[in-house]
Design a protein around this nucleic acid. Structure first.
Lengths: 212, 212
DNA sequence: GTCTATAATTAGATAGAC
DNA sequence: GTCTATCTAATTATAGAC
C-alpha cells in the first residue's frame, strides 16, 4: 500500500519533467512544427492528452523545455563577463575554461543548439522569446570581454559584433551535425577524445595569444 | 496572339524553377516537415496541385531544389582541393579566396545552410542523400588540403577531421541566424560591409600564417 | 497545363468516464 | 491524474472538368 502510493506519487511528480526531456529530443530532431505532441508523449509511454493536462499548449511545453535547458547551461557554464579585479591573462584563462565547458555542454546536450538553429531560420515569437530571455544576455556579455582580450593581443582578429556567431558556430556545428560526421567518417564526435581535441583546437584558434 | 502565346510559354517553362525558388525559401524557413506545399505554391501565386504536376512528390521538389542550389554553389565557389603544381603559399591564397567566395555565397543564399541544419538534426534518407551527393565530396576534398597547410605552418591548430564543421559553423552561422542578429543589434549581416569584415576575420583566424 | 473538388491522413486540443 | 473518444483544422496527393 505504501509502496503503491509511493509509486503513484513518483510517476505523477516526474511526468512533467519526463515530458520535457522527451520534448527536447523531439523538438531538436524535427523542429517545433515538425515534432508532434503524440510522438513526444509516446517517447515516454504516455498518452497525447497528458501533455495538455500538464502544459497549457504545445508552445507552453516548448518554452518550459527551453527554460529548463538554459538554466542547466548557465549553471554549468555561466556567462562570459569582464572581471576588473583580474589581469587580462587570467581573464583569458577563465574564458578559455568557459569555452571548454560550453563545448562539453554542447556535446552532451545537442538539443540546445539544434533547437536554436531550427528557430533562428525564420522570425517569429519563439525566436524573439529566445533572444530576449537567453541569447541576448550571452551576446551582450561576450562583446566587451572580447574587445578587452583583443586589446591585450590575446583574441583572434574577429569583429566584436561577429564573434558571438563565429564562436558559437565553430564550437557547436560539430555536435549539431553529429549524425553527418557519423555518416562521413563513422566517428562519434561526442566521445571524450573528440570533445577534448575540439576544445583544444577552438581555444588555440580563437585565443592564439593565450600562454600555454 | 503571338504575345499571348509567348506569355503562356514563358509561364509554363518558368513555373518549375519558380516553384523551386519558393520551395528553397519555405524549406529553409520551416524545414521539410514544417513547410507546406500549399504555402510554397501560394508564394508564387500558383495552386497546390501544380506542385504534384511538375514534381513527383514533396520530396522530389525538395531534392530538385537542393540539387539546383548545390550546382550554383559549385559553380561560384568550387571545391577546396590540393594542387601539387603550386606552392603552399599559393594554395593557401587560393583557399582564402574560396573561403571568401563561400562566405559571400552563404550571405546571398542563406537557404542552403538553413536547410542543411534542419536536415542534420536527425538521421534519415534526406540527410543521407545530402551527405552522399554533396557534403561528402566537400568534406573529403578539404581534409588533405588542410593537412598540407598545417604542415606549412599556415593553418590554425584544428584537427583535420574537425576542420570542416568548425570552418562551416564559424563562417555560416552568422547568416543562418541573420534574423537573430537583426534582433540583437539591428544589424543586417548580409550587407557588403559585414560580409567583408566577416571574411577578413575568418581568413585571418583560420589561416593565421598567411602572408598579408 | 491549370484549377476545383475531394480523398485519406494526421495534427493539437477538449470532453467526460474512471 | 489517466485514458478513450472525438472535434476541428490542416496536411499531401489525386480525379476530372476545362
Amino acid at each position: 500500500m505504501a509502496h503503491e502510493q509511493r509509486r503513484i506519487r513518483r510517476t505523477q511528480t516526474d511526468l512533467r519533467e519526463r515530458l520535457i526531456e522527451a520534448a527536447l529530443i523531439e523538438f531538436a530532431a524535427h523542429g517545433f512544427e515538425g515534432a508532434s505532441t503524440r510522438s513526444i508523449a509516446n517517447y515516454i509511454g504516455a498518452h497525447q492528452p497528458q501533455i495538455n493536462y500538464h502544459f497549457d499548449s504545445k508552445e507552453d511545453l516548448w518554452k518550459s523545455s527551453l527554460a529548463d535547458l538554459f538554466d542547466l547551461l548557465s549553471k554549468e557554464v555561466g556567462r562570459a563577463v569582464i572581471n576588473d579585479d583580474v589581469s587580462d591573462e587570467v581573464s583569458a584563462e577563465k574564458f578559455a575554461d568557459q569555452i571548454r565547458a560550453f563545448i562539453d555542454f554542447a556535446a552532451r546536450h545537442p538539443e540546445l543548439n539544434r533547437i536554436m538553429v531550427h528557430e533562428s531560420t525564420s522570425p517569429g515569437p519563439r525566436l524573439e522569446w529566445l533572444v530576449e530571455n537567453f541569447v541576448g544576455p550571452l551576446y551582450t556579455g561576450l562583446k566587451p570581454l572580447w574587445e578587452r582580450l583583443q586589446r591585450a593581443g590575446i583574441a583572434a582578429p574577429i569583429h566584436p559584433v561577429l564573434i558571438h556567431h563565429a564562436l558559437m558556430g565553430a564550437t557547436t556545428l560539430l555536435f549539431l551535425n553529429a549524425h553527418e560526421l557519423e555518416l562521413l567518417e563513422g566517428i562519434d564526435a561526442t566521445k571524450r577524445t573528440w570533445i577534448d581535441r575540439h576544445a583544444d583546437g577552438m581555444i588555440a584558434t580563437f585565443l592564439p595569444g593565450l600562454r600555454k
